[in-house]
């Protein structure tokens, strides 16, 4: 859930900045002690809790590598991101790590940035641009790991349904396909050339598989819609055994719906990302587990890579895979603690 859909116009920006401008900064999060003049920048594709966790990684790396890194979160959309990056170039930042909003169409602009600064992409790639490297999760692999969680939850097999905000996004489709392929026992595909099942495919199953993927329902980032989707699934499918939520708010919505229908235990939940409600449910045994992308690693690795590039060390490969973490009842306490620390550190 990193490129939320919205119509908010650029007018909003001025208001947001006004508020940001007059808000007191929390203590201790200012980058301190950087002695070098070089400044780099970390540009997100929007405003989201996910990015605050990433920012925590940036702060840690700033201290460790002694470099100053500005974090910019464009309110929404391509226009805003472009404006911010043009401003950074004007200021002469030495390097930029960006999550492009619309990689394909931004390629010419990204090339322009790459000419004037050191450019890497993170979270989302722009493979056709002249960026030096890409730091990201293998969402297909993460999807397969999520599929394994489902298998652990339903060793006897059963009916599974998937919930997601939008399927227009590549990462959402890769995750979904990973889950499907794992459950149906299909061979592992290469990230760059994943073949997708139709977005409205129903009752997917395969010979030899104990699992049926009933449907994939979307909600356009509306949490209320996400919850009513989950409720409707409970109504419609008597034999539903597991709900899979691909975006951060989906698993908590499923958990709520299951609880209210008194189906706790009868329907399992497997999720993605690390919302508190999901972690709480894992802790209490209402959810099987989740796949965390460890967002802080994005920030940390981005700063580290840019620092190396500025020092003359080019990355060996074009793709740096950030490892994801499978969180289950066994390690949830530890993970949650870390997440809390990171959230505190990453606050703007």
């Amino acid at each position: 859930m990193k490129t939320p859909f919205s119509v908010l116009s650029a007018v909003c920006l001025s208001a947001v900045f006004l508020f940001i401008g007059c808000k007191p900064k929390p203590n201790g999060t200012e980058p301190g002690g950087s002695t070098e003049d070089a400044t780099i920048a970390y540009v997100t594709n929007g405003v989201d809790p996910f990015w605050d966790l990433c920012a925590a990684g940036v702060r840690i790396a700033e201290k460790e590598f002694n470099i100053k890194c500005e974090v910019h979160m464009p309110t929404k959309g391509v226009v805003d991101q472009k404006r911010i990056m043009e401003g950074l170039l004007a200021k002469g930042v030495a390097g930029i790590a960006v999550s492009p909003v619309d990689a394909e169409n931004q390629t010419p602009f990204l090339n322009e940035v790459a000419q004037n600064s050191k450019l890497i992409t993170q979270d989302a790639d722009a493979p056709d641009s002249k960026r030096i490297a890409y730091i990201g999760t293998n969402n297909y692999k993460a999807g397969r790991a999520l599929g394994k969680l489902v298998k652990d939850a339903l060793p006897e097999g059963g009916e599974v349904i998937i919930f997601v905000g939008r399927l227009e996004q590549l990462n959402a489709r890769q995750r979904r396909q990973g889950v499907i392929d794992e459950l149906l026992g299909k061979p592992t595909q290469e990230l760059g050339s994943v073949k997708f099942d139709a977005v409205d495919a129903k009752n997917l199953t395969a010979e030899g598989s104990k699992y049926t993927i009933l449907d994939t329902r979307t909600d356009n980032f509306d949490k209320a819609k996400a919850k009513s989707n989950a409720e409707d699934a409970i109504t419609k499918y008597e034999n539903l055994k597991c709900m899979v939520g691909l975006f951060a708010y989906n698993p908590p919505a499923c958990i709520d719906a299951i609880k209210e229908a008194n189906k706790a235990g009868a329907i399992k939940v497997c999720g993605f990302d690390e919302q508190d409600a999901l972690l709480q449910a894992i802790k209490e045994g209402h959810a099987q587990g989740t796949i965390s992308q460890q967002p802080w690693e994005y920030g940390y690795e981005s700063v580290k890579m840019l620092k190396n590039i500025l020092n003359g060390t080019m990355p060996e490969k074009k793709f740096l895979e950030v490892p994801f973490l499978v969180v289950t009842k066994d390690n949830v306490e530890e993970f949650w603690k870390k997440k809390k620390e990171m959230a505190e550190l990453g606050k703007q």
Binding site: S6, F221, K223, A224, P252, D256
Partner: peptide, 11 residues
Amino acid sequence: LDSVQPAQTGE
């Protein structure tokens, strides 16, 4: 909803 997303709730 039990959880409120500042950017999305009510959008």
